[in-house]
Nucleic acid binder design. Structure first.
Lengths: 186, 186
DNA sequence: ACTTAAATTTGCCTAATGCGCAAAATTGCT
DNA sequence: AGCAATTTTGCGCATTAGGCAAATTTAAGT
């Protein structure tokens, strides 16, 4: 299934959404068309899935070790975000955003992927705070962060990606700005 | 086109997504199937569109009149929200959320409609503040509010809808809660 | 009212899609 | 190896997406 999604994403980047059909995806991944439809309802869904990465929950557990008892939810969240939205991930999202601009049918599936990020972060944060924090609080917090990240993800806010060597990167500056506003109120 | 969307939404409520085909939608709306595909890429998109309501920008102008110079963006936004998310609108969204639970293929199109609300509010707020406010600020603010509203919209948070007679309604209480958090920080 | 240009709708056609069903292949377990 | 559970596949068919050109409707000018 991962193979199918990857194949779809690659084909979309190489040929554009109209440049291939489901058979091509299945073929490249080494499966039959029927298997493709077992997992995806359309090309678009497969492409979007291919652009996203599954974050295993192991990272979450790694994080737990570094947490002191009184770390604020907002700080936990921002640590999470930084683990989740790696440079690689953002680049993939950008690729997808590009495809979206050309093919309107992609947009809903793009949104679905971003939404999944959102939901994952929310659930993880719930677990990490262990039910001690109001659920609405968490919903709002995560909603705010992802609402602010969306323009970054889809490229409508231009962000210089950090590479390992450069010390000043605007991506983290943007994150800091989000942090400030959410922390101190509007 | 509105007629097609409405027909699709009604059919989805009456028969469920699997209970009809595109021809039925076109037929009920009095158009041909070919015309349907001129406007929608699939049933789902039509249904989602039918569930949403176009807000003309007249309301925005109405609002402008009531605004004093120094009204805070967050207060403008909450007035906007209250105009946009009427009880009727929320009920339609709930209907759609219900359909979503049964038919996973609807979800991306549901998200698209909600996203549109989000974008509309953002653009309106930009106009109303007339470029005097940082764009990131607005993105975050609107993102926070809609992130917090999403669980309400899709019904995962149970909310008693206000009717005209009841004075205490939990929907507005929820809005107030969102307001507090965003205003005062996390 | 009449004419003409622009926009919308439609029919026709064909490649592509979605999915139920049952058979075949693969995997996992003992 | 033997057997159960899961995954993959082929077949078939109703449905769908969209290019193209004709037909119809709408809007505008005179």
């Amino acid at each position: 299934m991962r193979a199918l999604a990857n194949a779809a994403f690659e084909l979309a980047m190489e040929q554009g959404l109209d440049g291939f059909i489901v058979d091509d995806v299945a073929g490249r991944a080494g499966y039959s068309r029927r298997t493709f439809t077992n997992y995806f309802s359309c090309k678009e869904e497969a492409v979007a899935t291919g652009a996203s990465i599954v974050n295993d929950t192991i990272e979450m557990e790694q994080m737990l070790e570094n947490l002191s008892e009184d770390t604020l939810p907002i700080d936990i969240l921002f640590q999470l975000i930084k683990m989740q939205l790696t440079v690689d991930y953002l680049k993939r999202m950008r690729e997808m955003a590009l495809i979206c601009k050309k093919h309107l049918t992609m947009e809903p599936y793009f949104l679905k992927v971003v939404r999944q990020l959102h939901v994952d972060a929310q659930e993880t944060l719930m677990k990490l705070t262990n039910g001690k924090v109001d659920e609405v609080y968490i919903q709002l917090l995560v909603g705010g962060v992802y609402g602010g990240m969306l323009p970054v993800i889809d490229g409508s806010v231009h962000i210089q990606f950090p590479d390992q060597s450069s010390s000043n990167n605007t991506f983290h500056q943007h994150l800091d700005k989000i942090y400030e506003y959410l922390k101190n109120g509007f």
